[in-house]
Design a protein around this nucleic acid. Structure first.
Lengths: 338, 338
DNA sequence: CTGAAAGCGCTTACAG
DNA sequence: CTGAAAGCGCTTACAG
């Protein structure tokens, strides 16, 4: 591996002149010298060592993507299509700015701090904040700029990118109301504990209230996790004397599970029951009929998070901000007009 | 940020003694000294700098996951559920061995070399090799151990983990044959150019041959990409006077598209047409009926790739090997008995 | 426009 | 069991 020293020797200049060329310090090197040095660098396919630079500049160009581990050693958050999109966009957006994505799954704040200190990460992005205490502690103790997705506290300085969850729940419910439904249920993964889900639920309540409808407690399903959770909701529905005509789910996968559970037991979607999902993720287009769902602009969200992080990295005073991204409804085939 | 120097000063020892503690060099430090040093390290939450270590040891503990960019700037290979699983497992397996995953999308071999040189990556894993010339060149020029997934050449030393693609195509077709089908089509993304797909296709041909059935050219669909490709296959099917009773797809998403295209046009699955997918990825359980598909053991594949990489990292002579992982059939609801 | 010196935070021989 | 010295590959002031 060729080093700056050898390049300098062959060019007959000092190492620092080569360094100036590498870092494009303007007006520091004469055009002829620069040209000569560049040719030699090309000839040897010279690439500066990130480790050596990092040691000097205190900037590693590493951005950590923080993925919390929930229960099992491998909860595999990346398996969530939303996460896969996000990480994919981060990688693309960051690499184009010469920053690199390092994945970091963690169980507690200490893990993150070890990661940051060890790699000298220039910044970190936390996905899926699930425990408010952890998120708070992280925001306070992080050693480099942190952007949190989908969670924000006003009482602690932090950078967050969220979406209009409440509006999302509202437009989902409003849509089925406008289609003539009045008996509308809600299925969510953790209405009580997940801020995102509870906001979506509130939005659903907002819409019902607008129509002076009292939510039927039996039609609110909590703790419905992923596809299986949705299937269980469908099974519960099948056993009811009086069923809702529509269900709003807090997540596409739950909605897909509801569809599957119904379809496997002779109920048609949307004929017998209408379903609305949330996220507009890949499962929503795979099922038949395609799922009507609340769309979040994942790409824009990723761009926004990266912008925030970059700004925070250059401005030490920028440590508190909240961007809330819009959502809209994608109408497909899972809602019937009554 | 506290450094080894300060720890040493506070402990009243030299930096190298601290270094020996950090690296657990046995029999080099007295128990009392070690205890004293460890307490001071804990007190300051000391974490050694990866950059500094990397500079000395020539080992960065970075493993690059190479994701080729096909057409658009963001082909987003991670969006593929299979890729998401893989990367997720890699992250978990590697982090437990104190290695870290860095994502690296690339358009050509030179990009990879720049990445390797810059970060001094200890190893790289290439996913989705799509261009044999690129894969060959990469295998020859890589600057650190490389494990390629799903592609192997015998004439160049390389480390690969593949799966029994041909067997997969065979057991898929064999299954529908055993269920009484005789008119069986095949839908693939790139039968000609993708080695993986062509092997799966060959397996399908093997099974037909075993039953002395000549494949019907009109029922072989090439260039079916992802869900939409499957929908197009379904549309083509709908327009046929004589249709196959079963279709083997080279990928779950294509199978899901076929199902969707049929179901949206009044054909039932498996009533009117049976479908078999490949990969046993998440879409296969989301659709109704759930998809019968060829399962590949992604987790085992990931473990195998990591083992290979680790071995190659410590043994410079280990540069050529091929592991072929088994596959099996997961019978669900998308195949009817005739 | 160019260079000599010092230093980033570690580890690696080599002595003792 | 412990240490002084040199060095990994760069960059950062400071001179000239």
């Amino acid at each position: 591996m060729v080093t700056i020293k050898e390049i300098a020797a062959e060019a007959g200049v000092s190492r620092m002149t080569v360094s100036n060329v590498i870092n494009s310090v303007r007006g520091k090197v004469s055009p002829e010298t620069e040209k000569r040095i560049r040719e030699i660098m090309d000839k040897y396919h010279y690439v500066p060592s990130r480790a050596a630079r990092s040691l000097n500049t205190k900037s590693s160009h590493i951005i950590g993507i923080l993925l919390p581990i929930w229960n099992a050693p491998s909860s595999g958050l990346l398996l969530n299509p939303y996460a896969a999109f996000m990480v994919s966009y981060f990688e693309e957006l960051l690499q184009s700015r010469d920053y690199y994505v390092m994945l970091c799954s963690f169980s507690n704040v200490e893990d993150v701090l070890l990661f940051q200190r060890g790699w000298h990460a220039d910044g970190v992005i936390q996905m899926f904040p699930h425990d408010d205490a952890v998120t708070r502690e992280l925001a306070e103790r992080t050693e480099s700029p942190l952007v949190v997705l989908d969670r924000h506290f006003n009482d602690v300085p932090m950078l967050s990118v969220c979406i209009e969850d409440r509006k999302g729940g509202y437009i989902a419910a409003k849509h089925v109301l406008e289609e003539g439904h009045r008996d509308i249920g809600f299925a969510g993964s953790a209405i009580e504990t997940s801020c995102v889900v509870s906001e979506r639920y509130r939005g659903y309540l907002d819409a019902l209230e607008e129509y002076h409808i009292r939510p039927e407690p039996a039609w609110t399903f909590d703790h419905a996790y992923r596809l299986e959770g949705g299937v269980q909701v469908a099974n519960a529905l099948l056993g009811m004397k009086r069923r809702p005509t529509a269900i709003i789910a807090s997540e596409d996968l739950i909605a897909c599970g509801i569809m599957q559970g119904c379809q496997e037991n002779g109920l048609t979607v949307p004929g017998d029951i209408s379903v609305v999902g949330f996220d507009n993720s890949s499962p929503s287009t795979i099922v038949t009929p395609r799922l009507t769902t609340v769309n979040q602009f994942i790409r824009k969200k990723a761009e926004c998070a990266v912008e925030m992080l970059m700004r925070a990295m250059e401005d030490p005073d920028y440590r508190s901000d909240l961007k809330v991204m819009d959502v809209d409804l994608v109408k497909r085939g899972s809602v019937a007009r009554l």
